[in-house]
Amino acid sequence: MENEVIHTEQLTKCFGSFTAVDHISFDVKHGEIFGFLGANGAGKTTAMRMLCGLSHPTSGKGNVAGFDIATQGEEIKKHIGYMSQKFSLYEDLKVWENLRLFGGIYGMTTKDIARKTDEMLEYLGFEAERNTFVSALPLGWKQKLAFSVSILHEPKVVFLDEPTGGVDPVTRRQFWELIYHAADRGITVFVTTHYMDEAEYCDRVSIMVDGRIEALDTPDSLKAKYHAETMNDVFQQLARKAVRQAD
């Protein structure tokens, strides 16, 4: 139990008569890269919003970073990072202003923000862009920056909602190197994606179909179990069972 950063039991969310997330139970270990897969409308985003304290579960239990998701949402928010599907930095602010803003929002001291900003820009090789408006950066850079901002305050776990949508394969590869780097530092990564090659990069993968978790294991074990060559085949076999229409 000590080693678990995320723990859920029979977690459920209903909107009226519609059950978006249907009794899901899983654990994510410290420093793990956990892939959260599912077709559009399978309930991924709803599940993730509950884990981030953005949405109250209808029933079931859940813990994130040691706090109850039903009652301690505010505590959870201090210990997680979040990068949304839509690009989420302020385009009309400069790179360093974005860093200062989010550092400030997460209660970091001015000194810490300055130190982390230098470290991060150096690691990304973005020193020259410190005073550039975010709107002037290419999409791939923005996404890398957004990820770095989401872990600026050294959260216990970072939630990434389809972080690599719309970027080229080379940039995606670089993005995943950032994710590995973060996981090495002990930040647990919870990531949703539609790219099956990315699923292969994860330590463990869960696949959601119609609000339930249909499979959960390492990519290799899943491929063995479903007699598939790639994660894409595994996903196709499972997702085809879906009754629900994508939204």
């Binding site: 953005l54 505010e74 979040y82 949304s84 599907q85 839509k86 929002i105």
Partner: peptide
């Protein structure tokens, strides 16, 4: 519209 609201709501900002 920009998606920053979601990030803000997921942050400790009330």
């Amino acid at each position: 519209e920009m998606g920053t609201m979601e990030v803000l709501l997921a942050s400790p900002m009330k």
